[in-house]
């Protein structure tokens, strides 16, 4: 269903790459997730690198996960999305969300996939 796609995580510090590696301990990844840290790179450079990836891979759909809604990564992701219906920006990425992304990527249509992974991300937050 979502065969030709690009998935990226943009995060503060090493969070995105560590999250990606941790998720790979739980599931066989359905796709490579490219991770970008805002630690050193300017937002301009991050955006340029993702644009280059989009140009090279020509994906039908792009999923950009960010750690903090309202943070600099969120700003970058929204600039990339601007006026494009094929790019989906998902804020508040966590482990259950990224696991769900890999599990459901080839099972669900894009809209249902985005709804499902947000739901699973939320389901993974609780207290007892």
């Amino acid at each position: 269903m979502n065969k030709n796609y690009l998935a990226c995580v943009i995060s503060h510090g090493s969070f995105g790459c560590s999250l990606k590696n941790a998720v790979h301990k739980l599931v066989v990844p359905e796709t490579d997730v490219c991770c970008f840290s805002n630690q050193d790179m300017s937002l301009e450079v991050i955006e340029e690198r993702i644009r280059e990836l989009m140009e090279a891979r020509k994906p039908d759909k792009v999923f950009i996960f960010v750690d903090l809604v309202g943070g600099s990564c969120w700003l970058s992701a929204n600039r990339l999305k601007k006026n494009r219906d094929d790019i989906f920006v998902i804020g508040g990425v966590n482990m259950p969300m990224l696991v769900s992304f890999h599990v459901n990527l080839n099972r669900l249509e894009t809209k249902a996939l985005v709804e499902k992974i947000i739901l699973d991300g939320r389901k993974g937050i609780l207290s007892r």
Binding site: N38, D40, M41, S42
Partner: peptide
């Protein structure tokens, strides 16, 4: 914070 891009030199982790 002024971050990395081509032509900038590093002074601090958040200052290029």
């Amino acid at each position: 914070g002024i971050h990395f891009k081509e032509g900038r030199k590093k002074y601090l982790p958040y200052l290029y």
